[in-house]
Design a protein around this nucleic acid. Structure first.
Length: 612
RNA sequence: CGGGGCGUGGCUCAGCCUGGUAGAGCGCUCGGUUCGGGACCGAGAGGUCGGAGGUUCGAAUCCUCUCGCCCCGACCA
């Protein structure tokens, strides 16, 4: 491919609204262009990378017998109403009406009514496709003989994110591979889960990025388990903790925190109500210094406690107040609170309501004496005595709190956010190490959620009707490509992993006006393409060598082959590795052999760079 | 949703406070000199100053409204 004919415009300066590396570099390299917030065009180079990654995904899924199909992006409201998600999905589901519904709205208006157009929305853009696939399967699969079945598509999704950002990493429109499997029983679904888990490991290993499968929160669906696949990158939005001794790796939302021994705070004494007067002292660290009495000049932070009031909403619409008590220096993990009570939704009680409920200003609320609140206490406080806590009276704290004694009916459980260096709860030996990750894939056991709500059933060997057990498995295609860039770049530009590089070899012709030089460059291009390599030939005239090198570095193909009059005087061209910057001088006729050798070397290095 | 910022040729930005002929650099076109890490000279093309309304003799500039985009936050009780 001749670069002079390629649709590309590289930018010397970083576009103002690009804030993460992958977005900056891909925009500067002329690979993507923003069309609206969170919506991008993929220009030819980016699209080559995307398609290459799609092919890797297809090849690996084919090994597990998955079948590819394609569902529509525009989905009817009825299916979503049937699963119940039309109501629950919220504003991320972009809804609208077709002409028929619009006509009805217009008719109502003509009659003088004032219809709310939202009531007439009858379509949405698909953010995920459980409903559609379940509908397909229930209409086409009746017998256990047809199961198990795993169906997938690679398709454009739309999620109307509250706040799109980070270019391709959190767009509103994006390409996703979503697979759904259907089974006669749990055991079979579990086998498929691990088959997909292993397929994902193969996929991301082939890509050549550092990644980790990570245990994750499965949310309110319950009972099931799930892994996320994260590409490790400092700019990742997710925090991951990984044991340095065993395999336990999890999203910090999920990571089990070890129960720490209760501190030695002396013999337990009575709860001394309103003991400390600490006017205006709200922060935990400030309390430590401000809690003074005849015997104490300040308080160890591990002897203070903190309190959070949540309102939990359950699937049946009922609500309940939940209070969580933690040691002063610990951080709460709201996901653990939510899962412990089994809530569908949980929000921190709005401050004004909480103040009215407890009768104290922020900073002075506490768990003692609250009515109709389920009290949860972090297990690191089991057995603790002589703690301080808010008095539910502004400017005062109690002293001498013993949760087990003073909070009758409370439950001790794991509530806190695990932290780096905590002892691993799985092996008990290692310690957690912290990473940042970009979530690029997820495997999820769905169970019966959709098959029961949408009556997706099969007849078993006894002729009895059963709901199918389902699993779903996603990979963010465009996000993964961006994540690969996020992990592979330097100050000069992108360093594409070979398997998804838009082109593998960049021939830079320094003297395109010279028939001799451009002739050699074109011959090498032909030779390499003949040998199966993907080549971009920078044949642009009138550019200085420096400008061409800068562009080549920015585009970041793995190998650059420089063809210039200076080298050809000695009969040589130069092959340069983008990552190592090593240069090999060779005769033009040796290009295929040298490029093949370099390819083998690069692929070898990839294999050792992958995740575990 | 709350808070903040920004909208001026394709890109990065100046001009706005203090109203008076729309600018620079990069990119693009043409001509010439260059040519191994973003060369130089000359000549050009290209802009409803996000949009609407208002104030004014006169608005990119002042006022009002609006749209778009970006950032931060939405857990320390």
């Amino acid at each position: 491919m001749k670069q002079s004919k390629l649709l590309i415009q590289t930018l010397r300066e970083t576009p103002r609204d690009a804030d993460v590396v992958s977005q900056q570099l891909m925009m500067r390299a002329g690979m993507i262009q923003k069309v609206a917030a969170g919506i991008y065009s993929y220009l030819p180079l980016a699209y080559r990378s995307i398609r290459k990654f799609e092919e890797i995904v297809r090849e690996e899924l084919a090994k597990d017998g998955c079948q590819e199909l394609l569902m529509p992006a525009v989905l009817p409201a009825e299916l979503w109403q049937e699963s119940g998600r039309w109501k629950f999905y919220g504003d991320e589901l972009l809804r609208f009406c077709d002409r028929k519904a619009k006509a009805e709205v217009a008719e109502r208006r003509a009659k003088g009514e004032k219809p709310d157009e939202r009531e007439f929305y009858n379509f949405c853009l698909g953010p995920t496709h459980e409903e559609v696939i379940t509908d397909i399967v229930r209409r086409n699969v009746r017998s256990y003989k047809q199961l198990p079945m795993n169906l997938f598509q690679i398709q454009t999704k739309f999620r109307d994110e509250r706040r799109p950002r980070f270019g391709l990493m959190r767009g509103r429109e994006f390409t996703m591979k979503d697979a759904y499997s259907f089974h006669v029983d749990d055991a079979c679904a579990d086998r498929e889960y691990w088959a997909m888990f292993n397929a994902y490991k193969r996929i991301f290993s082939r890509l050549g990025v550092k990644f980790r499968p990570v245990e994750a929160d499965s949310g309110a669906i319950g009972g099931s388990f799930t892994h996320e696949f994260h590409v490790l990158a400092g700019s990742g939005e997710d925090a991951i903790l990984s044991c340095d001794a065993c395999d336990y790796t999890s999203n910090i939302e999920k990571t089990e925190a070890p129960a720490l021994p209760a501190g030695d705070h002396g013999a337990a004494f009575e709860l001394k109500r309103d003991h400390f007067c600490t006017p205006g002292i709200v922060g935990q660290v400030e309390q430590v210094a401000a809690m003074k009495d005849a015997e104490h000049d300040g308080m160890p932070i591990a002897q203070t406690s903190k309190f959070f009031l949540y309102r939990a909403t359950f699937a049946d619409g009922t609500t309940k107040l939940v209070g969580a008590v933690l040691r002063g220096d610990h951080e709460i993990n709201p996901v653990k609170v939510k899962n412990h009570v089994g809530a569908a939704e949980m929000e921190l009680m709005p401050l004004d309501e909480a103040e009215a409920f407890t009768g104290a200003k922020t900073g002075f609320m506490g768990p003692v004496g609250l009515k109709d609140v389920a009290i949860l206490v972090d297990r690191s406080l089991e057995g603790a005595v002589n703690l301080t806590c808010g008095a539910n009276r502004s400017d005062y704290h109690h002293f001498g709190l013993s949760p087990a004694r003073d909070l009758p009916g409370c439950t001790f459980t794991d509530l806190r956010m695990a932290a780096e260096h905590d002892t691993c709860t799985r092996c008990g030996k290692g310690h957690y190490q912290a990473f940042r990750g970009i979530e690029v894939g997820q495997v999820f056991k769905l169970g019966l959620k959709y098959s029961t709500s949408m009556s997706c059933t099969f007849l078993d060997e006894q002729g009895k009707e059963n709901p199918m057990v389902m699993g779903c498995y996603g990979i963010g295609i465009t996000r993964t490509v961006a994540a690969a860039v996020e992990q592979n770049y330097d100050t000069d530009g992108i360093i594409w992993p070979w398997p998804i590089a838009p082109y593998q070899v960049h021939i830079v012709c320094l003297d395109p006006a010279s028939p001799e030089v451009s002739g050699v460059a074109s011959q090498v291009e032909k030779d390499l393409e003949g040998a199966g390599f993907e080549v971009l030939h920078d044949d642009r005239e009138g550019l200085s060598p420096g400008a061409k090198f800068k562009d080549a570095d920015l585009l970041g193909f793995p190998l650059r082959l420089t063809v210039g009059a200076k080298g050809l005087k000695d009969g040589i061209v130069e092959l340069r590795d983008r990552r190592t910057k090593e240069v090999v001088k060779l005769k033009p006729e040796a290009a295929v052999a040298e490029v093949s050798a370099a390819r083998d070397r690069i692929m070898q290095a990839l294999e050792t760079a992958g995740g575990r």
